[in-house]
Amino acid sequence: MKSDSVLKNLVKKNWWISLIVLLALLIIFIPLPQSQNDAADRHFQVEASMFQFIPGRIQVNQGDRITLELISTDVVHGLSIDGYDFELIADPGQSQTATFIANKTGVFRFRCSIACGNMHPFMIGKLQVGPNWVLVRGIILGVLAVFAAFLSFRQSSHIQKSTVS
């Protein structure tokens, strides 16, 4: 009898946790309709110098055929994109070009892949393919976190009150 009520109490106490976890999973994993836009050919000239890429941000749509031309303006630089099997290495005076298809959505950092001095590890740019849904999901998750904080606080103060009485 007693254990039954404890269990009930436990469920009562923790229902909100399950709710929050469920919502969180939903926010993280719910599939979004893929936006249908015609894949285009896009050409970008990226200039690399110590220690920056210009432009530092590139935005394309999913499925676009991206042709990147890497132009090094001082020393040998490289450009590799996180999550994509893509790398360019260019000497000054010998710009390099390659093409890839932006089939993964999200924001990917591209980094200099050839050591080019002290700040080389931080020579970073960003490639955004399609809308940054991860950021949107992250923001919604943040709102849920605040909501969860209110709930958890209310629950714990309820329990305190009930145990006091």
Binding site: S72, D74, V75, V76, D91, P92, G93
Partner: peptide
């Protein structure tokens, strides 16, 4: 043999 700046 590899460009290393203006004064390479």
């Amino acid at each position: 043999t590899r460009w290393c700046g203006v004064n390479h």
